[in-house]
Nucleic acid binder design. Structure first.
Lengths: 214, 214
DNA sequence: GTTATTTGTTGATATATATCAACGCATACT
DNA sequence: AGTATGCGTTGATATATATCAACAAATAAC
């Protein structure tokens, strides 16, 4: 059971009537997680439609050498793994919180019956699915098409917060070792594309970096 | 303008009334392509919702070294790149026919207004989107998580026709050079997992191959 | 403020895969 | 028939990145 007011603040549900929100509240509930906690594991059966309302959630696979391969970092408010729920297949990856966070879990069978036929909700759902496809295509473009240098260039150009992240973690997102990342940064610094200021770098030549991945 | 009978044979539209099919026919048209022809290029603006009705269509990106990176091989009947049409963004990849083929092009704006609100069609659309997500996750799992040996093992276990394909082409799908593929086959043959019969290989030890990628 | 722990850097080496080059074996051409 | 053309194989070498090890720098703990 979930507070009606909180539901209304979620973009997905902004057009629902009071009555509908009440009904939605009866089929959903809120759960809190601490940093590091796992929301679900790869191969788990999904039981709820999950909406991330707070915190950062990473979705990852584990390769044969036990490296985590991060597929997605979700910010609120996002639907999580609706594909698996919709298809009734096991989760294709695991999900863990990078910060404290909260999710709303919705009974999907009832949701599908009573809400998914509404054009607004269906449209929001389409949007979420197409966004996810876009995101996955980017992941592929980033990781299969580009080499380490180009990956770093692209990521720091397109994500403002990248240079503030721990290099450890950044390396993980970019699917390379911290050593390789360190060497790429060193190279960029030598070329004058970035510069060390205090403990982190800043971009000095955005254009040059852009050329590296286009 | 598109023959009504042909539209009815497409699973997406099987539940439409005669009247609706007639209307759909007025906003769609059929196009034929020969082997090798390009349906669209990366960065083109999508202008129609495209449904592959015949032939095999490959969707690919080109990397900085001009290698083709095949993201998807579509068999009929599939919606193609509906994400781009839906989001109104340029195609994220190019598409070319591997065989002769045909597509139906549908005016998306009119389709959205008049058909997408129908639950049956919306549901088929959901299905197509979620399938695509599943597919992309598989591409990622195959190409980022697994090494060459595991990729080949997985692909020949899961695709019956893989061993009949030209090695050249198979190598391209698996994102490796023909030389590497040849060496992997040689290794598998030496281990007795596959055996050369005439000009192609057959699987002799399915289980052993499975272990390699799980 | 000193010590301990984590995070980042650097160099040496290992490894997987690509690249390059040569050649054998098909199939198609005429 | 013989010759051309493309496909597949093999070996030698190059390349990018991972791995390992040592250390430096930063942050946290006491």
């Amino acid at each position: 059971m979930q507070s009606v007011n909180e539901l209304r603040d979620i973009k997905f549900f902004e057009n629902l009537s009071q009555e509908e929100l009440d009904q939605l509240a009866t089929i959903s509930r809120k759960r809190r997680f601490s940093k590091g906690e796992v929301l679900f594991y790869e191969k788990d059966e999904p039981r709820f439609l999950t909406l991330l309302t707070d915190g950062i959630l990473k979705v990852y696979k584990t390769d044969p050498k036990n490296n985590e391969i991060v597929l997605h970092r979700f910010n609120p408010k996002s639907l999580i793994a609706e594909m698996a729920v919709f298809e009734g297949v096991p989760y294709p990856a695991s999900a863990a919180f990078e910060t404290d966070g909260t999710v709303i879990e919705i009974d999907f069978i009832k949701f599908k019956e009573n809400f998914l036929c509404s054009p607004d909700i269906a449209f929001a759902f389409f949007k979420s699915l197409t966004q996810k496809i876009k995101y996955l295509e980017d992941v592929i473009a980033l990781n299969i098409v580009l080499d380490s240098t180009a990956r770093v260039a692209k990521y720091i150009c397109e994500n403002e917060d990248a240079l503030q992240m721990k290099h450890n973690q950044l390396a993980q997102y970019l699917h390379m070792t911290p050593e390789t990342l360190s060497r790429v940064f060193k190279k960029f610094a030598k070329l004058g594309f970035i510069e060390k200021e205090g403990s982190s770098y800043t971009i000095k030549n955005h254009e040059a970096l852009t050329i590296l991945f286009e």
